[in-house]
Every structure is written in structure tokens, then in C-alpha cells.
Design a protein around this nucleic acid. Structure first.
Length: 743
DNA sequence: TAGATAACTTAGCATCTTCAAG
DNA sequence: CTTGAAGATGCTAAGTTATCTA
């Protein structure tokens, strides 16, 4: 998040210059007047544009879509902009909205039902016999190795152990595969029922706080102070973070100090009045020491730790859902600590409290073995609600929101939902043209609300913006999505770089990731934007007649199950499909095909603005790779020379030896060339990927069936693209997708 | 029927693990 | 065998949407 850190830096200098706490800064922050230009639509604008421009046909529009990826300005440009600071904004934006009907449920989505009869619980591997055989072989192998050379050196033995462990792992994997629940071949449950039986052990609680040893002291105002346990624990949270830049931020420090004092005893509170007089040095040093020793532990200890962890996973990491053992995603209760929100979060530094069993609600079957709370404790509640998917929940104290323990992505519950998501997106494909035509038409509407809706939809569709819910002021960082865009977030250019009607976007989106883009838009959109911005200030809402409920209500009337985020899924998947078709070629080798895939993936990531901070070691590792390429090039030159020489010598000769040498050299050249190409491809890929994150779209937006089908057609092994977890998560797609799948 | 909240998806970064090169 | 980069996984914050409640 380069731009993030950039604004952070600026924040800091600002803070240095201005010694008042930023809490004060917040209070002082002049609220921008929000002049809601209600009913200010000038009707004479209507219809004017007809003379200038005909409505785009869906086809023309879709051409726009194709070169969308080139429009997205990768953020370097934005990075350079030193003026980029989003000011703390004025007010809470709560508006009354037409109530969303809520009747349009996604559950109507019809999954392509494979009318197969229920498969037996154990599930059938593709070729169970072959698998069993394999497993047997493995077992024998393991046995052999175990018995084989027992009188060997210690080293060898551990090696063997590793080998055995590996074999065991493979065996385990195969068993796993065999036991995979092929839920996608079963009938779905009716209306909202998520399970009929659910049993688990409850969440795993982090270990209790271990008091400081006596020789590690906290000092206040130069004097050693023995803190009470609760205060000490919180002090340690802060001490541990001392290397982080954010412990220097005023908001963070103030929030921390306020919450810390709440944990203190009366005397402590009376003594410790100023954070600047606190010396956490020894605590910090102790923590660093601990990290260091943890890093240096022996292999044996590591193995022991691993086993201990595995035991925890085995005990708490699984549940039984409708007769199948399923992995739980996050079975560990979040440990206490200091809250660190993203970006400029007003609550950063606040204490995230320790969760006790008394805070936790358990959800499971009535007839299951109810999880035991830790000794001496009880649950807040045990309920048996089978229309939800969570196993346990608690309320987090910083934001007051609910946290849930849910299943792993490879579970039936998650998989089915995911599948459904892509089916909804595919349904959008069949009616997207009509919807586009409609919103183009709506741009001319007499109703201001309708026009705003149309423009918002245009953005959501064309630029893959998020819906943009309203947020409560002061509770979170100031970020926006489509519906919550403010006037200050866009700049209109009648012409820019030879293009007409360019909208320049500059705002912080989810996770405070900057969205910066200059996009030529339809003239009518441009005109509407001008209209929406009339008589408004920077801090005013661009779409003052619109919110996500209104928008989604409208969308669901166009297609059941349609909401704003479906457009992101749809456009991401369709872009991947198009790009793959365009970029990849059967003639390429696997490395090149993978580059093509990554490029298609990248087009999607750019569309969705999935960014990452360039890896810290990026420059170095790039240079290393380049060095390797150079040396390989030299090798290649050498090999070529040698080949020439060999050819020369062999010319006219019938000496078999010489001919063989020529062949050898030829092979060497070829190998060199291949390796070089591979590295060069890798270098290109990495460079292009510098600040783009491919993972998010792969995980959340791209219909896996597109990828599976592409792999089949291109003869690329799937595991070159999907790692184990992805293959598990998308098991349904891997299993059911034929080569002719079309999104 | 709006506003609150519950439920669930999406997100990037941190950390742990693995694997390949030196 | 060591080192470091890449890749995988873990963590939890931050969104969206559905649903509840007064």
C-alpha cells in the first residue's frame, strides 16, 4: 500500500508541525457544509444531449468494456502526486432510504442440478481401486524404510523419519481425497436450512497471560513500577509494538493510553498520567529476545511444537456436519491485543479485550455432544439454529461487531454458496445487455434519483466499483464506494490527453486502498455528473438521492438475486474468459501459457483494483534474477559458439563421434535457450506483478470453472494455477467442469 | 419502514513453510 | 547444509447484503 504509507508520512509531518493531539485535530476539523441540493434538477437539461449523441448500443458499449483494462491507471502515477491527502471528513452520512423490500432472495438461484442419485456417505474416489493400490504401495514403502536400516547414523534416521513422514502425508492426502464429500452431487436443502446435524468442540481459547519475570521492569518517570496483572498485560501489548511506526501516532497513543488506564488499579491510575513518561524498554527488549529465541529453536523442538499444534487442530479444528467431518476455518478465539485498523483509523490503539467463554455463544445440534466450556467457565448461551452456518460467535468490543467461527472454504456450506454466487453472475450475463440498455436510457430520466442510479450503475458496471454503504463517521477510516462517493473524489475534464469527457477518480476504497483512475465516459454520464455536482461542496455526496439499499432494490427487480457486487463477479469472470481466449495459444509452452494466464488474471486484478505493497525485497530479487539471466545468456553464447565449432569440425566428416558431439551441443544450446526463456518470462511476470495482487480475484471473483476448462484445453496441469487449498476450495468445479465450459 | 444488527464475503498483510540455489 | 525468496496459510479488518426490531 504505497499510497497508504505516503499519506501516513504526510500525516506524520503534519503531526510534527502541529503538536496538538490528533484527537483534537478531529474535533477541530472544520465540518464541511453539506448542502444537499435537494430537488435542484434543472429540467431544461433533459433531452438536450440527444442532438449531440446517440445512445450507445450494447455492442458499442461492450467494446468499451474490452479496453477497460488499459484505462485503469496503475498507481505509480498516483503515487507521484504529492497532493494526495484525503482530509478528514465532516459528518455522519445517514440518510433515509426507501426500504429495501428484502423479498428478493438469492436463494432462488437455481444451481445446475446434476440429477444424480445420492452418493454414498464415504464418497467415491475417481478410481477407488487404483487409489487403494497406491496407498498400499506407499505403506509397504514406509515399512521397508522403517525396517531397512535401523543401525544407521542419527542423521540418516531423521532423514528417514522425514521420508516416512512425507510418505505418511501423501497417504493422508489420498485418504482425504477418497473421503471427500461430493456434496455437489446431492440435492440441496430446502429454504435456508444449512444443516441437520452439527457437532463440534467449541472454539479454542488462547493461553492465559503469563506475568513478567521479576527482573523485567516497567518504569514510570524513571522509577520502577510493579503493575497489576491486567495493566501489565496491556502494557506488554504496547511494548511489543514499539518497533511499529504507528505507536508514534497520536491517535494510536491516545486510544491506547485511555484504554490502558481503564485496566489499571486506582493507585496505578493516579500515578500513571502521561504516556510519554512511560518506559517500556525492558518489556520491549524481553519481547524481542523471545522472538529471537523462538526463531532459533532446534529442529526437534520445532517438530514438537508442530505436533502440539496439530493436536489442537485435530481436536478443535473440525466439526461434524451432516455426517461429514469438515474443517473449521477459524476455530481459534482472537487473542487480546491493541486494535490496529487499516489506514487512518480513529480507533487504532484501542484495547481489544480478551474473550472469555462467558462471551461466547455456541451453535450446534440439540442432539449433538454439546461442547464443554473450559473448566470453571460457562458459555454465554448455547443455541441450535440451523439456518445459520456459524458454530460460535462473540461480540468484539472495539467496534461492537459480531465475530463468528465458521467453516473452512473447502466445506460444503462455503462451497455451495460460492457456486451459487457464480451461477448468479452467469445469469447476469444473459440479461446484462438489457440492463445496460436500461441504464443508458435512465441517464435521460426526468427523475434525479433515477439518473443518479443510472450513473452509479454505469460506474459499478464499467469500473467494477463496490456498492459503497454509508458508514458512521468517526467509527472507521474515511473510505468510500460508489454510492458514497463525494464531490471531492472526482474531477471532470472536458478533454484530457486528447480524450473527451474524462472523469478522474481519486478516493480511498476498502482497506484504504487508493483508487485512482482517469476514465473517458459517455457524454451523457459526464453531463449528469456536472449536474450532480452543481451547488455542492467537496464534502457533499455525489449521489445525494441514492444509497445501496435503493440501488440493490432496483437491481433485484431487474433480476432475482442481482445486487451491486454481482457486477464485480460477473465482470471479473467474463474478463478472465475473454482475456484467456485472446492471449493464450496452444502453441506456447507451459511457461508461456502460464504467463498468459497470469496476464489475464492481472487484467482482472487491475479492473478490481487489487493492489499490494511491492514486496520489500522486490528490487533486490529482481536484480538477482536479472543477474541470473545475464549469466545464462553468456552461457548460451558460449554454447552456441561451441556448437558452431563442433559443426565446423564435423563438416564433411562422417565420423560418428563428431556428429554425436554436434548433437550434444545442439541439445545444450536448446536447453540453455529454454531456461533463458523461462527466466525471462518469469522476470516479465514478476515485474508486471509488482504492485498487483492476483490472489484476491483468483480466490473470490473468478469462476473456477473457467480456469479448470482452460487448463484442460491448454493441457496445463491445474496445480500450476491452483494450489492445494484452492483445489480443495474449488473441488466442485474441478470435478464437474468439462473442457467446453463457457461462463 | 428506517435503522440496527446479524450473517457472510472480501481483503491485504504477517508469518510460517517449503524449496531451490549457492 | 545454509540462506533467502516464493508460496502457502493464518489472521482479522472491512466490506456487502439479508434480516430483525421498534
Amino acid at each position: 500500500m504505497a499510497e497508504d504509507s505516503c499519506s501516513v508520512k504526510e500525516m506524520e509531518t503534519e503531526l510534527k508541525d502541529n503538536p496538538c493531539s490528533s484527537e483534537d485535530a478531529f474535533a477541530v476539523n472544520p465540518k464541511k457544509k453539506k448542502s444537499k441540493a435537494k430537488g435542484k434538477v434543472k429540467s431544461q437539461h433533459e433531452g438536450k444531449e440527444k442532438t449531440h449523441r446517440k445512445i450507445k448500443t450494447p455492442k458499442e458499449e461492450s467494446m468499451d468494456f474490452e479496453d477497460r483494462r488499459s484505462q485503469v491507471n496503475v498507481k505509480e502515477e498516483a503515487d507521484k502526486d504529492p497532493d494526495f491527502v484525503t482530509e478528514g471528513k465532516g459528518k455522519k452520512r445517514k440518510r433515509k432510504a426507501d426500504k429495501a423490500d428484502g423479498r428478493s432472495s438469492t436463494s432462488e438461484a437455481t444451481l445446475p442440478k446434476k440429477k444424480k442419485k445420492k452418493v454414498a456417505e464415504e464418497g467415491q474416489g475417481n478410481s477407488p481401486i487404483a487409489k487403494k493400490k497406491k496407498i498400499k504401495e506407499k505403506k509397504e514403502k514406509v515399512k521397508k524404510e522403517e525396517g531397512g536400516c535401523s543401525v544407521s547414523t542419527k542423521k540418516k534416521k531423521t532423514k528417514e523419519e522425514i521420508e516416512a513422514a512425507r510418505a505418511l502425508k501423501i497417504k493422508k492426502k489420498e485418504e482425504e481425497e477418497k473421503q471427500r464429500w461430493r456434496w455437489w452431487e446431492e440435492e440441496k436443502y430446502e429454504d435456508g436450512i444449512k444443516w441437520k446435524f452439527l457437532e463440534h468442540k467449541g472454539p479454542y481459547f488462547p493461553p492465559e497471560y503469563q506475568p513478567l519475570p521479576d527482573d523485567v521492569k516497567f518504569y514510570y518517570n524513571g522509577k520502577a513500577v510493579k503493575l497489576s496483572l491486567p495493566a501489565e498485560e496491556v502494557a506488554l501489548f504496547f511494548a511489543q509494538m514499539l518497533d511499529h511506526e504507528y505507536t508514534t501516532k497520536e491517535v494510536f497513543r491516545n486510544n491506547f493510553f485511555r484504554d490502558w488506564r481503564k485496566e489499571m488499579t486506582l493507585e496505578e491510575r493516579q500515578l500513571i498520567m502521561d504516556l510519554n513518561k512511560c518506559d517500556f524498554g525492558e518489556l520491549h527488549a524481553m519481547h524481542k529476545q523471545k522472538v529471537e529465541t523462538r526463531k532459533n529453536i532446534s529442529k526437534e523442538e520445532k517438530l514438537v511444537n508442530k505436533e502440539v499444534n496439530q493436536k489442537i487442530v485435530d481436536e478443535y479444528g473440525f466439526c461434524v456436519l451432516d455426517h461429514h467431518r469438515e474443517r473449521i476455518g477459524n476455530f481459534k478465539i482472537e487473542p487480546p491485543g491493541l486494535f490496529r485498523g487499516r489506514g487512518d483509523h480513529p480507533k487504532q490503539g484501542m484495547l481489544k479485550k480478551r474473550i472469555r467463554p462467558e462471551d461466547v455463544i455456541i451453535n450446534c445440534s440439540k442432539d449433538s455432544h454439546i461442547p464443554e466450556p473450559p473448566a470453571g467457565h460457562c458459555w454465554k448461551e448455547v443455541r441450535h439454529d440451523n439456518v445459520v452456518t456459524w458454530l460460535a460467535s462473540w461480540t468484539e468490543n472495539v467496534q461492537g461487531s459480531c465475530k463468528y467461527v465458521m467453516l473452512n472454504a473447502n466445506s460444503k456450506l462455503k462451497g455451495e454458496k460460492d457456486w451459487e454466487k457464480y451461477e448468479v453472475a452467469r445469469r447476469l450475463k444473459s440479461c446484462v445487455d438489457a440492463i445496460r440498455t436500461q441504464y443508458q436510457e435512465d441517464l435521460k430520466s426526468k427523475q434525479m434519483g433515477t439518473r443518479q442510479r443510472a450513473v452509479a450503475l454505469y460506474f459499478i458496471d464499467k469500473l467494477a466499483l463496490r456498492a459503497g454503504n454509508e458508514k458512521e463517521e468517526g467509527e472507521t477510516a474515511d473510505t468510500v464506494g460508489c454510492c458514497s462517493l463525494r464531490v471531492e473524489h472526482i474531477t471532470l475534464h472536458d478533454t484530457l490527453d486528447g480524450q473527451k469527457c474524462v472523469v478522474e477518480f481519486d478516493f480511498l476504497g476498502k482497506d484504504c486502498i487508493r483508487y485512482y483512475n482517469k476514465v473517458p465516459v459517455a457524454k451523457r454520464v459526464f453531463k449528469n455528473l456536472k449536474l450532480f455536482m452543481e451547488n455542492k461542496q467537496g464534502g457533499d455526496d455525489l449521489f445525494d438521492r441514492l444509497n445501496t439499499q435503493v440501488l440493490n432494490k432496483h437491481l433485484s427487480s431487474l433480476m432475482p438475486g442481482l445486487t451491486a457486487k454481482v457486477f464485480r463477479t460477473y465482470n471479473a469472470s467474463i474478463t478472465l474468459q475473454q482475456q484467456l481466449k485472446e492471449l493464450s495459444n496452444m502453441k506456447e509452452n507451459v511457461a508461456e501459457k502460464l504467463l498468459s494466464y497470469n496476464r489475464a488474471n492481472r487484467a482482472v486484478a487491475i479492473l478490481c483494483n487489487h493492489q499490494r505493497a511491492p514486496p520489500k525485497t522486490f528490487e533486490q530479487s529482481m536484480a538477482n534474477l536479472q543477474a541470473k539471466i545475464d549469466s545464462r545468456k553468456e552461457q548460451l553464447d558460449l554454447a552456441k559458439k561451441e556448437l558452431k565449432q563442433a559443426k565446423k569440425e564435423a563438416k564433411g566428416s562422417t565420423d560418428n563421434k563428431l556428429l554425436i558431439v554436434v548433437e550434444k551441443k545442439k541439445k545444450a544450446v536448446k536447453r540453455c535457450e529454454e531456461q533463458l526463456l523461462k527466466m525471462e518470462v518469469q522476470a516479465t511476470d514478476r515485474e508486471e506483478n509488482k504492485q498487483i495482487a492476483l490472489g484476491t480475484s483468483k480466490l473470490n471473483y473468478l469462476d473456477p470453472r473457467i480456469t479448470v476448462a482452460w487448463c484442460k484445453n491448454m493441457e496445463v496441469p491445474l496445480d500450476k494455477i491452483y494450489n492445494k487449498s484452492l483445489r480443495d476450495k474449488f473441488a466442485w468445479a474441478v470435478d464437474m467442469t468439462e473442457h467446453d465450459f463457457v461462463f
